[in-house]
Design a protein around this nucleic acid. Sequence first.
DNA 1: GTCTATAATAGGATAGAC
DNA 2: GTCTATCCTATTATAGAC
Lengths: 198, 198
Amino acid sequence: MDLDPPSDTFAMPAPLLPRDQVVMRLLPVFQKHGYDGASLAELSAATGLGKSSLYHYFPGGKADMARAVIERVEQWLEEHAIRPLAGPGAPERRLERMLKALDGFYGGGRNACVLGNMVIGGARQLFQAQLSAVFGRWIDALAALAVEAGVPQAAARLRAQDAVIRIEGALIVAGGLGDPAPFRRTLRRVPGDLLAQA
Amino acid sequence: MDLDPPSDTFAMPAPLLPRDQVVMRLLPVFQKHGYDGASLAELSAATGLGKSSLYHYFPGGKADMARAVIERVEQWLEEHAIRPLAGPGAPERRLERMLKALDGFYGGGRNACVLGNMVIGGARQLFQAQLSAVFGRWIDALAALAVEAGVPQAAARLRAQDAVIRIEGALIVAGGLGDPAPFRRTLRRVPGDLLAQA
DNA sequence: GTCTATAATAGGATAGAC
DNA sequence: GTCTATCCTATTATAGAC
């Protein structure tokens, strides 16, 4: 007796894709279509999984998928934007690393901001708290960097908020104009405006 | 014979609402839900018109409604933002009029930007050209004002683009944080940043 | 020009086999 | 864990009476 393989091996074969990989494939769909515009059909196609398989990963359906994507962006931001800001080296160099990462993430201004997309429509009510936390955390990290660079606390907070405002706004305007240039230009001017000694 | 009233009076009773009024009632729905999230049911409720009546005004359906709304925003912008910029008086005062109008239009930062909403999802492809024209025209008008105030041409264009970027971004961040303060703060700093002698 | 009624379809979500 | 098949509702859109 007891020759059966452990029950979880039998009942739960290994997934074709680890959950994190699935989330990464969902992301561009929400990035392009927003929450309301993202259909299960497209989410299914993007992951290569049938609708039912998606419901296995995300029992709460589309809302769960979007939540996971926002969490993934949060995690990405933590890793590629916020952590570098607190790392070693001159503040200018750390900020540069964040901007480089953002430039890549947003395709140099050709992609939209997933977080920005989630501010409108049905998503807003669903994810307001989560979005507020992410934006707040991002702003805090930038403000801390500015303080470290010698900017007074109050001014640092305003500058940090302005930096995020500009990045988000630049993605909107770049999308509206169909021209990524405003985004890249905006990224270039962030360091001076955030860190300059007043 | 010929005692009948003119055929158009008979066949086409006066509308309950002039078309422009209908468009004005559609606007907040697209402003709140974006293009993909705006349903005919809600558009119908907002106007007080049945779905079929909406199709009378807008034979092309939802896309036609959104197009009309964008045109209306364009017209509003022309009247309340762009025309004042070209009017009489000191540049600072004209800019102030535009900012005052924007503050009202966006509910002091509690509303989203209809144009910004149309940059994502199904709307982007449909309205890209229209959006590009509106953003471009707005930026041009601000740049002209800056030039008039003594800012060199090239710098004026960049500053104007940055002003629009900040306004759009502030609406996103205000929405994300659930706090309109960033928007109002952003409006207040536009004049100095746009018009200052470098 | 507006309505009620209805068509036609796409959307989100579930059941059950494997 | 994944699939096919299906359900149910909401959605866009149209038909036709008034």
